[in-house]
């Protein structure tokens, strides 16, 4: 007989295992997301003290939008995120192409070193970069933040683009050359369009990482070049306030949207 009979005992055990697994999953989600939900809920709290709920209000949102220090930090954050994304996307893409398509002296070593920023602790990156700028006598500003962000973002962009490149059939580029396309035309009409989903995903990742970074930015931030995460940190030192909840909520929303877009682009292709 082909069909297998499920004995009641089997059935019970299976459903018990399944139920245990789903409870574990629910527990994990609660653990991960409950704090964020609380944060979002309390950003609408009317009370000045962040931990006591008194009623629903959007007044802290209004306050945050009118706070000059927040607006300034937002501008710095966006400026750093934008330019570090642009620069690291270009450099990271070119790096990925070089690593995947060309042979050059010291390639293996370079390959290993390239991904170091992903592996080494942020604090080590931060300290070493700070030391580097101090030794060179460069004063800290938004430009030093930018340089530090580009440094770690290149690695992430290169990884994402390289994965895409590795999937790409190398004979496509040969086919273009065979049909009379010179190297520049091949790059423009074949390589770039086919890599585009990877490049966009890499850029969104870079943007998110830059926007979220605290440790490295904190060490690089000069006077007047505070980013949002650094601002939150300095505000929290005077006690948790609904204002901090609002900024954090907005940042969470922004990052989430970017990550979802990035995932959707990667999934679609």
């Amino acid at each position: 007989m082909a069909a297998t009979t499920i004995t009641p005992r089997n059935k019970i055990r299976k459903s018990f295992n399944e139920r245990a697994l789903s409870w574990l999953a629910i527990g994990m989600f609660v653990f991960l997301y409950l704090p964020i939900i609380i944060l979002i809920v309390y950003s609408f709290n009317d009370n000045r003290f962040a931990s006591v709920w008194t009623g629903f209000s959007t007044r802290w949102y209004t306050e945050v939008f009118n706070d000059e220090s927040v607006r300034n930090a937002f501008r710095v954050s966006m400026w750093v995120a934008f330019w570090s994304t642009v620069i690291s996307t270009i450099l990271g893409t070119l790096t990925a192409i070089a690593m995947e398509r060309f042979k050059f002296w010291g390639k293996v070593t370079y390959d290993a070193i390239l991904y170091l920023p992903i592996i080494i602790p942020d604090i080590v990156m931060a300290l070493s970069t700070l030391l580097f700028f101090v030794i060179l006598g460069i004063s800290l500003s938004r430009y030093t933040i930018l340089i530090a962000h580009v440094a770690f973002n290149i690695a992430f962009v290169a990884i994402v683009v390289r994965a895409r490149l590795a999937d790409m059939d190398a004979s496509l580029e040969e086919a273009a050359a065979d049909l009379g396309a010179n190297p520049w035309e091949t790059f423009r009409r074949i390589t770039i369009p086919l890599l585009l989903p990877g490049i966009i995903a890499g850029a969104l990742l870079a943007f998110t990482l830059s926007l979220d970074d605290f440790v490295i930015t904190f060490f690089m931030a000069g006077p007047g070049s505070t980013t949002l995460p650094v601002l939150i940190f300095s505000k929290i030192r005077f006690g948790a306030s609904p204002e901090v909840n609002v900024i954090s909520t907005l940042m969470f929303m922004g990052s989430t949207i970017l990550v979802i877009i990035s995932l959707m682009i990667q999934r679609r292709t």
């Binding site: 059939d169 004979s171 086919a175 065979d178 010179n182």
Partner: peptide
């Protein structure tokens, strides 16, 4: 270079 030769190729993987 390949792009200046008067030949065309049909690739095994179609490409």
């Amino acid at each position: 270079p390949a792009y200046r030769r008067p030949v065309n190729t049909v690739f095994q993987s179609y490409a």
